[in-house]
Amino acid sequence: MTVNDRSVSGDIDPRTLLVHFIRENLNLTGTHIGCETSYCGACTVMFDGRTVKSCTVLAVAADGATITTIEGLAKNGQLHAVQEGFWERHGLQCGFCTPGMIMAAVGLLEENNNPSEDEIRHGIEGNLCRCTGYHNIVKAIEYAGAKLRGEEPPPAEWEVSA
């Protein structure tokens, strides 16, 4: 399979989950494991251009697929707009759900780069965050959407009120 533009291969037990292959065989530990019931979304990666939960995909089923993980998102040292949004708008606290959340947001904005708040909230329904109450995650995605549209992002709440 191709992971982050790099061709990779490995001889594995068929029961190996894609997330374990990514973390253990490829040493890409940015993709996290938060549950085993495909609920939390911390393991979200791009699989042939769409988001999937890599804890619920067999690695063998990804043979030949094109995978992008959080480590492959920034290009030439340049953060993706979603990464920038999370940094600029305090979209993370402990950071554990963040890689999966960012990948989900990238998937959302690739389909619709001008989502409403409701559409953002719906678009990240498959990713749980326990720290932020999602408030600033929504703001981070709004920021990224504006950047992707080539617009000036709305100011941060703390800038408005300070």
Partner: peptide
Amino acid sequence: DPALIRGKG
């Protein structure tokens, strides 16, 4: 954040 948003945390 820079580490955490890049998957380097």
